[in-house]
Design a protein around this nucleic acid. Structure first.
Lengths: 343, 343
DNA sequence: CTGGCAGGTGGGAGCGCTATCATCTGGGCA
DNA sequence: TGCCCAGATGATAGCGCTCCCACCTGCCAG
């Protein structure tokens, strides 16, 4: 049990208080607490005891001001509750925490360059030592270029500036896996409900899908576009379900896939008997959809860790340019896909 | 180091640089930028021009150190991607931003008192001016009691300490709405898949459900318990589906409800023809489930705003105790519920 | 026996900003 | 005309910590 603090002063105890109690200098306290090597075990123990006794807590603001180091990284994310963004953020938080860094999040409601700029500026104001841009940055403004020059930055699934490292899931591969899976099942061709064009990962998936069809000499159906929402999937599903040719659909996200399946269901087209559907993300609910959803799982946690790792190395040596890295998604086959009916 | 030299290009411009360029004192710059009333328009304009010219950005650490005010509030959340937590966090972020406060998030992987304590301490280290506990705090430790005494705190859906304000969705009402809806449809009684007992909102829902059944003189079936995951819903669904009596189920979250429906489906029990299911949350996918899910919508964004509003008032006047506030959920009837079959 | 060297420690000097008080201007009023 | 007050500005002193350097022990080699 901890005892009541003996200090009567209104102010919380400072390093000098600890120093006085431990019978050493403030400087030694600083070193002992920072894990500096050149401190005797005995001294360190005394300091720790004093810290315990006083209930001392470091003052972060003072540390930052004095050292210029904040031990904090910033993450810019879009203000949505799409699974992918949430999962990625968690991966980043965990990895950062393990690396001894705090995470400061700045969300932006839109993808306007100016909105992203302002989020980055907010982080810069907090003296973050590095930033992770988890938004599909397409346009790189002068301002952003300048910021990424000043603060080590890693972009996730986005464009790179001259000074930015990029970490990404190989979205093209995700699309190729999904498309090939459907072709392997005997479908003549595969339709595609894409994400918003402004998102880099959406367009990568679109390209991967197209590439496979072209390589196999299949006709490439016109591409439909959603906005990641289940509702947009539903709308596109209502269209697809009215086209007799459609037997296989690759949807750019699980959430949209739910909408597509729902629409097909309402139109009386059975999944997977009449139409096979593949999503992307492998959200927790994918397995519990009816039918359970075949999808391409994205290693979000791994991504977050990778992004943080890259950022750490970039921060340690801003000069050395790192290779862009990518991690590989994996196909998860469930019940929403079936062999094409030979008719 | 020569302190007499003019500013080098290496370091970002400081307030003294702005002062020099504007031809005023650093003090006046501070006042002008803080929107202090006693500054001439002309002077303020000069300062602003100098700021613009130099690209000056305030140093947050120095401001905090000097003034003791951080203009930041902290949010403690559980490290999950359950919809409810994500949505609430967004509500908080938005409201805080509008109030001119930054949000610092501290996630905890577990509900251990010690884990929550450590998250709160991390926030305290960052000199947050207020905290929002968005975790279902059950056990209040001395340490926590002490922290909430030192930093204005608002709890969302949790216990209150002696110094904490509480904001909550009326979860009991949510449960009563769902249960009564099912009874109104003619079901003899309603089964319940609850959330983890450790969560206050889960137990409130359980109580509300039980209260309605008892008030109506119905038999209260044994309660099943999940962990919010779709998978746990599935497991419980496999049990419920094997009990012939079951015709109506109130599930404590949409995500679990998906699992329940899936399991019932596999067992050949039709929803809603054989069994009606109601969830809680109204996640985006609820409408696109098959059948679309009847659920109780929670006003998460409103909650976030309410919590921030409460916190702001509490911060402004820590003395005056505020009323606990609650917002009301609303039933959304979709296709997963139907009248009981008269047999 | 002495110099040197290394690990430990202490003593300032700031980091960039704001709080506090002092100073200086300009009217309004007797 | 003068006095006084209020509004506008400046000077100074820290906020709590970490940096750089000086210092002081020992202990080894020369």
């Amino acid at each position: 049990m901890d005892k009541h603090s003996t200090r009567e002063a209104g102010r919380p105890p400072g390093m000098t208080d600890v120093a006085r109690v431990a019978g050493v200098s403030a400087q030694t306290v600083s070193r002992a607490l920072a894990g500096h090597p050149n401190v005797q075990e005995k001294t360190r123990a005394k300091v720790l005891a004093a810290v315990e006794q006083l209930g001392y807590r470091k003052n972060n603001a003072a540390r930052v001001l004095s050292s210029g180091r904040s031990r904090t990284i910033g993450v810019v994310t879009l203000q949505t509750s799409f699974y992918s963004r949430t999962a990625l953020t968690h991966g980043i938080e965990r990895a950062a925490q393990e690396a001894g860094y705090a995470v400061s999040a700045a969300t932006t409601a839109s993808l306007d360059t100016s909105a992203i700029e302002s989020a980055m500026l907010r982080l810069a104001d907090q003296h973050v030592e590095g930033m992770i841009l988890a938004v599909p940055l397409i346009h790189v403004s002068r301002q952003i270029e300048q910021l990424t020059g000043a603060v080590p930055t890693v972009t996730v699934d986005g464009s790179r500036t001259s000074a930015t490292e990029v970490v990404a899931v190989d979205q093209s591969l995700a699309a190729r896996l999904a498309t090939r899976h459907l072709l392997d099942l005997g479908h003549e061709t595969v339709w595609h409900v894409a994400g918003p064009r402004a998102w880099l990962d959406a367009s990568s998936r679109s390209q991967g899908w197209r590439a496979v069809l072209e390589a196999e000499g299949r006709t490439v159906p016109p591409e439909l576009e959603g906005d990641w929402s289940p509702e947009s999937g539903y709308r596109n599903g209502l269209i697809l379900g009215r086209i007799p040719d459609v037997t296989a659909v690759f949807v750019a996200s699980d959430e949209m896939a739910f909408g597509v399946i729902r629409a097909l269901h309402e139109l009386g087209r059975k999944v997977p008997e009449d139409i096979s559907v593949v999503g992307v993300d492998d959200i927790a609910l994918a397995e519990y959809c009816s039918p359970s959803l075949t999808t391409v799982a994205q290693p979000f946690a791994e991504m977050g860790a990778l992004a943080v790792g890259h950022l750490m190395r970039h921060m340690a040596d801003p000069g050395a340019a790192l290779e862009p890295a990518s991690v590989e998604p994996a196909l998860v086959v469930r019940a929403s896909t079936a062999p094409a009916r030979r008719g």
